[in-house]
Amino acid sequence: MNKVSEESVLSLPERHARILALLQQNGSISVTQLAEQFRVSEVTIRKDLSYLEQQKKLYRTHGSAILLSPYISDRHVSEKEKRNVEEKQAIGKAAAALIEQNDSIIIASGTTMTFLAREIRPAGRLTVITASVPVTQILSQDEQADVIQLGGITRSSSVSVVGPFAEQMLRSFNCSKLFIGVDGIDPDFGLTTTNMLEASLNRAMIDAAQKVVVLADSSKFGRRGFSKICDLEAVDRIITDCGIQAPYLDKLRERGIEVTVVNC
């Protein structure tokens, strides 16, 4: 019996297991693709996906399915900093290695930026512009680092500043690199965060930098925050960990983005 006919005679639990296996392999898959794969109607597949979503095993979106809900709510920095610690440390170390002698950089907000700051060992004189209060606290202790703390409204959840004053300050600067953390990376939707003021400040940071380096652990891929920062075309490099799924890695590299995968 050939493969197609085997797919068509699967029991309901077997079909559900195969659907989840395909999602693990591909990250997402459409209703049409599943219907063709299993030689059943799209109505049947929608019922399958509805059941699996009720079991909290996948998330349905726009005629397709993914493993997890892509939508992210804002969480306090004290909660975020406890997640994926080893991955963030490795990502921060890889990012710090990109900083050159007498460099001028921008560091955005987020817990991964704090891990980056702890790994920075300035060669020559380093100038850092940042929205993150913890980053300022760390780097201001280094005599070789000149730290410019952006001013504005302080977000208690991230302990960082946002708002028009910070954006206005950035218009006076031009830096070699922006190191930015995000809440979500979607190949189609781009970079996102949960706060619209932070997204606006991030866009101003992008305008003030020659290169954009995104630091994101693998849990951020396929997710979306409330506010869009930019399309992927604005990104030069992404540093992530080995948990990134192959389909996301392939799509990023196909679009000309340099991706560094650190060891887990």
Rank of each mutant, 00 (worst) to 15 (best):
D183T: 06
Q137N: 15
D74N: 06
Q101A: 15
V235K: 06
N263A: 13
I153T: 11
E87R: 05
Q25G: 02
A145G: 04
L68Y: 15
T44L: 07
F115Q: 12
P70V: 02
S157V: 11
T154R: 05
V31L: 12
P70D: 00
H76Q: 12
R237G: 02
R237M: 13
C230N: 11
A199R: 09
N195W: 00
Q137C: 15
N2T: 14
T44R: 10
T194K: 03
L201E: 01
E14A: 11
K177D: 05
T44I: 09
S104R: 14
L150H: 05
V261D: 04
Q137K: 11
A234C: 06
V128P: 04
Q33N: 11
F115R: 13
S176F: 04
L12T: 13
S219C: 08
K80T: 09
L20Q: 08
L126R: 05
G63Q: 11
K177N: 14
N263W: 10
V135K: 03
K211P: 04
Q141A: 13
G124R: 05
K80R: 15
L22Q: 03
A35V: 07
T193S: 03
L197H: 13
Q89F: 11
A199C: 10
N263R: 11
L67E: 15
F179A: 07
N26A: 11
Q137W: 10
E143S: 12
R171W: 06
A145M: 09
R253T: 11
K3V: 12
V40Y: 06
I106H: 09
Q24W: 06
L191I: 07
N84M: 12
L201C: 00
K211F: 06
Q24G: 11
N2K: 14
D207R: 14
V213Q: 01
I66G: 10
V85D: 01
S132E: 06
L52Y: 03
G110R: 00
Q37F: 07
P122L: 02
K177I: 12
L201I: 00
V261S: 08
T194M: 10
D241P: 06
G92P: 10
K88V: 14
N202W: 00
E233C: 03
L201A: 00
L12E: 15
G124I: 04
S172E: 14
G124C: 03
I180V: 15
E42V: 05
E14N: 05
